[in-house]
């Protein structure tokens, strides 16, 4: 099983529901962009689905035992935390913990997963650097690499492109798209509609606790939805370079 199934899914924070009546089915090979204004519940949806916060209804992920879930889904939280001055290699190797027995050292399969993740993210030159001494964007890339090294069928990342320079934003989106093409499921929350339109195979828009739109980018990013949910108007076109979505102004 490499997808995610949510049935009648709801998450409450205090007395009010942040999300309610969410039913969502994501399959292997899909790169889902999770969109929505601030506070729409993007992070809540992913954390709830993982079972990191209490929810009602069914989630195929939170139904798993924690150890099993850790081998099924990798999660990159929005807060980029590196507590100790460990090397980049050591930090990325943490992604292999769910695959290793207690007290076990990384085996050849673990090393292969680590090397492959480092290659995909282009971090070869950083391997022996101290992670806490890197720039914010570099740290973000190292943490994404940790999630890739976990080598799970499902990858959930919270605003992975935030803080990266344009070249690395595009590189990251290409890497995530390649993961999906290899049959894995990728769910990424994001705010950059241009990147989402170009790279995601499917967009899910959260708004007022529910799903406002769900489908391929050209069907989701309509003028009506952009005005209603995001309060913006945007230029959207299918070009020789692929779809382009460029926000133009705020709708009152």
């Amino acid at each position: 099983m490499s997808g995610l199934e949510l049935q009648d899914f709801a998450v409450a924070r205090g007395p009010c529901d942040v999300l309610r009546d969410i039913s969502l089915s994501v399959r292997g090979g899909e790169f889902v962009g999770l969109l929505g204004p601030n506070g729409a519940g993007k992070t809540t949806l992913m954390r709830g689905a993982l079972g990191l916060m209490a929810h009602r209804g069914q989630s195929s992920l939170s139904a798993l035992a924690p150890a099993q879930r850790a081998r099924t889904a990798a999660w990159l939280p929005q807060a980029r935390e590196i507590a100790w001055p460990v090397t980049v290699d050591t930090l990325i190797a943490l992604g292999r913990l769910p695959h290793m027995g207690s007290g076990q050292r990384p085996g050849p399969a673990d090393q292969a997963a680590i090397d492959s993740a480092i290659d995909r993210m282009g971090l070869q030159a950083f391997r022996s650097r101290i992670a806490t001494q890197l720039s914010g964007g570099e740290q973000a890339r190292v943490l994404i690499t940790r999630a890739l090294a976990q080598a799970t069928p499902l990858l959930m990342v919270d605003e992975p492109a935030a803080g990266l320079d344009p070249a690395h934003q595009i590189g990251l989106m290409e890497t995530l798209a390649a993961e999906a093409r290899d049959g894995r499921t990728v769910i990424a929350s994001m705010h950059d509609l241009g990147l989402a339109a170009r790279f995601c195979t499917r967009l899910v828009v959260l708004w007022r606790g529910g799903i406002a739109a769900d489908g391929p980018p050209e069907q989701v990013l309509t003028p009506d939805l952009l005005a209603r949910v995001f309060h913006i108007r945007a230029y959207y076109a299918q070009t020789d370079h692929g779809p382009i979505c460029q926000p133009l102004g705020v709708v009152p």
């Binding site: 954390r47 993982l50 990191l52 924690p66 150890a67 879930r69 850790a70 889904a73 990798a74 999660w75 990159l76 939280p77 807060a79 935390e81 590196i82 507590a83 100790w84 460990v86 930090l91 943490l94 992604g95 913990l97 769910p98 290793m100 207690s102 007290g103 943490l143 940790r146 976990q150």
Partner: peptide
């Protein structure tokens, strides 16, 4: 020991890794 290693990435990431 392993759980403390995982916590290097923060509580949320550690929890997602089975801690």
């Amino acid at each position: 020991a392993r759980a403390l290693d995982a916590l290097t990435l923060g509580e949320d990431a550690a929890a997602s890794m089975g801690v």
